[in-house]
């Protein structure tokens, strides 16, 4: 069992098809908190105390965002700069986040083929997210490989219909403590098919 904090950062949510579908499908439950950063802090005045309080009360921290120039949107970076304080998150006395999980949930315009050594982006998304992985490391957090939606520009409505249940499966799996048994050395997060699902059921 794990409490999950979804830190969601999207500066143009109204134009996003995939994130709108994903976010609107998120179930209401006590152990799952959706925290929409651009909705909370349109003026970038991040309330550090409040954010640290939120982090303290959760076991899994998800960074959900579109990949912009191979990185996080600016408000999420601002959030990191301000909230992950020295002496609180890292450095001497900074142990507030020890043992918690950091899980990127990322959408990218490029296809999976574009994100590899021979593709036009020349690196995998996990490689691009090295600063995030290192941040997790420095804060004593456990970093999970990113869960990725590729090729968002070309997604049709049927594709999105197929992605939403997979996303809900991911959330369920994390809430059930699935990360404890996750394979951490992959390029992307592998969510095992749910045990007990009947054959033929699409996960």
């Amino acid at each position: 069992m794990a409490r999950v904090l979804l830190l969601f950062a999207h500066p143009a949510f109204q134009k996003s098809r995939i994130h709108r579908s994903l976010v609107s499908s998120i179930p209401e439950r006590d152990d799952l908190t959706l925290h929409d950063l651009y909705e909370e802090y349109p003026d970038f005045l991040v309330d550090v105390e409040r954010e640290q309080e939120l982090l303290t009360h959760h076991d899994v921290v998800v960074f959900q965002h579109p990949l912009y120039w191979y990185s996080v949107p600016p408000l999420l970076k601002q959030w990191m700069d301000l909230v992950l304080e020295h002496g609180w998150a890292y450095g001497s006395g900074g142990s507030a986040l020890h043992g918690k999980w950091l899980v990127p949930v990322v959408s990218a315009g490029g296809t999976e083929a574009a994100y590899c050594t021979v593709g036009r982006n020349r690196r995998t998304i996990r490689q691009f997210l090295a600063p995030i992985e290192q941040t997790a490391f420095l804060c004593g957090m456990r970093f999970a490989p990113p869960w990725i939606v590729y090729g968002t520009h070309r997604l049709g409505p049927e594709d999105i219909q197929e992605i939403v249940p997979r996303y809900l499966g991911l959330l369920d799996w994390m809430l059930d403590g699935g990360l404890e048994h996750a394979a951490l050395d992959h390029e992307t997060l592998v969510v095992p098919e749910r045990t007990g699902s009947t054959p033929g059921e699409v996960p």
Binding site: V48, M80, D81, L82, V83, L84, E85, H86, G87, G91
Partner: peptide
């Protein structure tokens, strides 16, 4: 509270 931008404590550490 915005110590993330404040290098003082880091310099010490």
């Amino acid at each position: 509270r915005d110590l993330g931008w404040d290098p003082d404590s880091l310099r010490e550490d």
